[in-house]
Computed example of a mutant assay.
Amino acid sequence: MQPPPIPSKDAEHLRTLAICHYVSAGLSIVGLAFLFFHYSMMNMFFGNPRIWEKSQAPMPFNPAEFFQAFKWFYLAFGVFSLVSGILTLISGRFIHRRVNRTFSIVIAGLNCLHMPFGTLLGIFTLILLTKDSVIHLYAQAKATTSTDFA
């Protein structure tokens, strides 16, 4: 049985997809910087008791205690952003080298959680990596790599 013909555009689409993964990983780092900036501002706001002394209405909660609980959200979002950025970078490298297609498909699902750009990246990755011609490109790359070392 003859393998399906390989459209010439698939290689270019994979190259573009890998670049988009690199850009998305970079945006995760920018997101971490924003998260740190936001944490600093909120820490300054909630951590300063003098801001709340002149409040005319009684506070329904203690701002310091509220922020203490909120720190866990910053930590969780920071870890999620860092891990997903690293995994997206690795996935981009795998797409560039045309190896570990399953890993890239799983990371595409994870990227769908990053609204809106990650969702677009994840959907386009899923669409492209499930095409028969792209599966054939990955198989060719694997065959070429395995015969080079044999």
Rank of each mutant, 00 (worst) to 15 (best):
M1C: 08
P4H: 08
I6R: 13
I6E: 10
K9E: 15
D10T: 13
H13D: 15
R15F: 07
Y22Q: 01
Y22D: 00
S24R: 00
A25R: 05
A25E: 03
G26Y: 02
L27D: 08
F34W: 09
F34Y: 12
Y39N: 04
S40I: 05
M42G: 01
N43C: 03
M44D: 15
M44R: 05
F46N: 00
F46W: 04
G47S: 08
P49A: 03
P49F: 01
P49W: 02
E53Y: 09
S55F: 06
S55L: 07
S55G: 07
Q56M: 11
Q56L: 13
A57E: 13
P58R: 14
M59A: 09
P60R: 09
N62Q: 07
A64N: 08
E65P: 00
F66A: 09
A69Q: 10
F73P: 01
G78W: 04
V79A: 14
V79T: 08
S81I: 15
S81L: 15
V83F: 09
I86R: 01
L87T: 12
L87Q: 10
G92Y: 01
G92R: 02
G92P: 01
R97G: 00
R97S: 08
V99S: 15
N100C: 00
N100H: 13
F103N: 08
I105H: 05
V106N: 03
V106G: 03
I107F: 12
A108N: 06
A108V: 04
L110W: 11
N111L: 06
H114N: 05
P116N: 02
L120Y: 13
L120W: 13
G122C: 06
F124T: 09
F124D: 00
T125A: 12
T125Y: 04
I127A: 07
T130E: 01
T130N: 13
K131L: 13
V134S: 06
H136W: 14
L137Y: 02
A141E: 08
A143N: 14
S146V: 13
D148C: 07
F149N: 05
F149E: 06
